[in-house]
Design a protein around this nucleic acid. Structure first.
Lengths: 96, 96
DNA sequence: ATAATATATGAACAGTTGCTCATATATTCA
DNA sequence: TGAATATATGAGCAACTGTTCATATATTAT
C-alpha cells in the first residue's frame, strides 16, 4: 500500500493520540460514557490540569468532544473509530 | 471499561509503535509483503541505519518479524492485528 | 460586587524520541 | 585470507512530550 507522506503523518498523529498511558486511560473511561474533567481526574488520580492538557490534545485530534454545562465540561468520544481502535489494540495486547 | 495501569501502558506502547510517520510508512510497505532493510530504505528514502533502528523497535513490539537470508534480512508483519490497526486508522484519517 | 468552583492555558523542566555518524558484526566473494 | 556488502548498534544531539506550578477565564452563589 503506497502512502503519501501527508497520510503517513496524519495516521501517525492519530496513533500518537493513543500513545500515552494517561490518554489511553482517559479513553477507557470515556468508552463508558461522557465524564467531566474533574471526574476523570478523580478516577485516574491525575491532576485536573494534566487531564485538561491531555483532553485538549484529544480534542484537537477529534477523538473526543466537549459539552459545556454550567461550569463543568463533559467529554465524550467523538466517534466510534476511537473505541474500535482501542478495543482492537487491547485485543492485540491481551492475546496476540 | 476499567483498565489496569499495566494494560494501559502496554496498550499505549502498542500505539506508540505506530505513532511515527517513518514507522507508519514502513508498515505500509510491509503490508504488501516482506522486504529487506535496504529495499525499505530505498523505497522510503531513509538511511539504512534509520530504518534499522526503527525496525528494531517494531521487532521488540512484535509488530514485525525478521527472516535472515544470506546477508540480507527480510522483514514482514508479525500478525494481522498490525494490518488491521493500520487500515482502521487509515479509515478514520480518510473519512471520519 | 466578591468569593468560590471548574476548567483552560502558558512557562519551564525532566524525560523521551528519531535521526546522523562512526563503528561493529556477519556473510559472501575473490 | 582480505575486501566488499548488508545490517545492527552505540553515542550524541536537537526536537518533542507530559507533567507541575502559577495564573487566567468563565460560571455560579452569596
Amino acid at each position: 500500500m503506497k502512502l503519501t507522506e501527508l497520510k503517513a503523518i496524519k495516521l501517525s498523529e492519530l496513533f500518537s493520540a493513543l500513545s500515552d498511558a494517561s490518554r489511553v486511560r482517559i479513553i477507557s473511561l470515556l468508552i463508558e460514557g461522557e465524564m467531566s474533567v474533574s471526574a476523570l481526574a478523580d478516577g485516574l488520580k491525575m491532576s485536573e490540569s494534566a487531564v485538561s492538557h491531555q483532553l485538549r490534545g484529544l480534542r484537537q485530534m477529534h477523538l473526543v468532544r466537549a459539552r459545556k454545562s454550567g461550569r463543568q465540561v463533559f467529554y465524550s468520544l467523538d466517534d466510534d473509530h476511537v473505541a474500535r481502535l482501542f478495543t482492537l489494540g487491547l485485543d492485540h495486547v491481551q492475546h496476540g
